[in-house]
Every structure is written in C-alpha cells, then in structure tokens.
Amino acid sequence: MTGINTPSARHRRRTGRLDWIWFVPFFGFTLLFLVIPTIGLIIGSLTGGHPRVTLKYLAQLSQPQFLDAYRTSIALSAATALGAGLVGILLAWAAIGGGLPKALRPLLMTFSGVASNFAGIPLAFAFTASLGPVGMITVLLQQATGYNLYHHGFSLFNFWGLAITYLYFQIPLMVLLITPALETLGRWSEAAASLGASRWQYWTRVALPILRIPLAGALLVLFGNSFGAYATAYALTSGMINLIPILIGQEMTGNVLFSPGLGDALAVGMVVVMSVVFGLYLLMNRKGGRWAQ
C-alpha cells in the first residue's frame, strides 16, 4: 500500500473512529423530533395511554364521521391531483412546444414557483375576494348575466370550492414537476417523426409510455400535497369541513374531545395514507430512473 502515507489516508485513520460524530446532531434531532413523536402516535393509537394494547381506537376509525373524513380528504386530494395533473400538463405542454414567445417559459416557471408556495391563509382570502358570496367574480357575473352562483348550488366553502382553491397551488406544482419530463419528449418527437410515425402512433407508442412514470410520480406528489394541507381548508371553511387534518386540529385546540387514543389513531391513519403514497412515489422514481438519463 503505497498511498498509506498520503495526508488523506493518515487523516482517515486518525478520524476514522470519530466518523459518527458528524451524524450525531442529524440523527439525534430526527429521532427526537420526528421518529419518536411518530412512534408515540402509533403507540398511543394502540394503547390510548393505558398499559394494554388494544385495536379499539383504530377500529373506531370506521365510525361514519371518521370514515367520511377520510373519504372526503382522499376524494379532495384525488380530485385536485387529477384536475391539476390535467391542467398542469396542458399548460406546460403549451408553453414548451406551442410556438409561444420564448419569454413565456421562464415567466411560467417563476410564477409556478411562487403560486405553488402561495397557500394557506392568504390564498383563502384571495379566493374569498374572488368567488366568495360578495367576491368580485361572483358579483360581476351576476351584474353581467343575472346568474348568481350561490343561488345555483355553488359555494366556495364546501368540497368543490375548496378543490377550486387548492388548484391554485396544485396546478403550478404540476407544471414544475412535469416540465422536465416534457422537455425530454422533444427529442423523441423528432425521432418518431423522422421514422414516419403518425400522430396517433407517436402518442400511444412513444409519448405516453415515456410520460407514464413521471406522470404517476407527479400525481402522487400532488395527492400528498393536498392530503396534508390544513391552513387553506381551515381558513376557507372556518374548520367546518370534515377533513382529517381539520379533525386533528379540533382535537388539539380542544374544540372536540376524542379519547386520546382516537386522536392518535386519526393521525396514524394520515401517516399510513401518506406512507402508501410516498412509497408508491419512490417506486415510480426508481422505475423512472432509467428514462431520466
């Protein structure tokens, strides 16, 4: 071993045993403030603070109120993920390959970065000012056509109103997520065209198979993004919509008192849904890695 006396090798020997010191703050912190509290929730959901393990709290999640909350949360996340997925991909596609001025693209990307982070309380205010009962769009629509949205079943403060509002941060996130994949498509499009593929062949044989995995990955991120959202829903509905994050918030502020185990079970249910979504996302990413080269 001739390299044994280079400074780096000497250093390695000297510090080798202390390597772990570099990781102590990170692992200590994540254990203390992320892993252990999550494990605490799981234990709480199985014991309710009593020394005996029971499945009764998790079983209580099947009560109509909680089942409905999970259903609404999942439906809201799925609806906004699919809606934003469709609109986002159209927007990105139009901006990349639609022969529009070049200046539009950086503008779209920067705006998407901003809007995907414009969520929570101010977003709820912005939509109340637009589509609320006396919002600008509601009023202008009534003045122009006599059509009052609120007399025809529309409300900003229910499921669909919330979905329209969520799209404001979901669509830009989709644009950010899918643009890299769409950019690689350009090369494939030229290759397919030069080989004489028809439009139909190109889409079914080339574009969709390439886009399938990044698309699925992006939809999963969108789903998770909406599933964990609390502030927007709370501010818009004053906490009057039956979503899981809202229920957990009510439990914490003492507005409703579930048994301790039940609150934990609600939270664990959220973590389980998010884990499934995230697990699928990682799986997609690994599969998609081949195409990302």
Binding site: F23, F26, T30, L34, P37, G44, F227, M252, M274, S275
Partner: peptide, 27 residues
C-alpha cells in the same frame, strides 16, 4: 449512511405538519 440520511430527510413529507405538531405536543 447516505441512504439513511436521505430517508430521514424526506420522511417529513410523510408526516404532515398538523400530525407532527400533534405528535410532538402529545409526547
């Protein structure tokens, strides 16, 4: 170790903020 650092760094995505604060306060 990098795999572990990466895993733990991304783990907060799985635990929404409202659940995180609920777990922390509970414990």
């Amino acid at each position: 170790v990098r795999t572990w650092v990466e895993f733990l760094s991304i783990l907060p995505f799985v635990v929404p903020p409202i659940v995180l604060v609920f777990g922390m306060v509970g414990l």
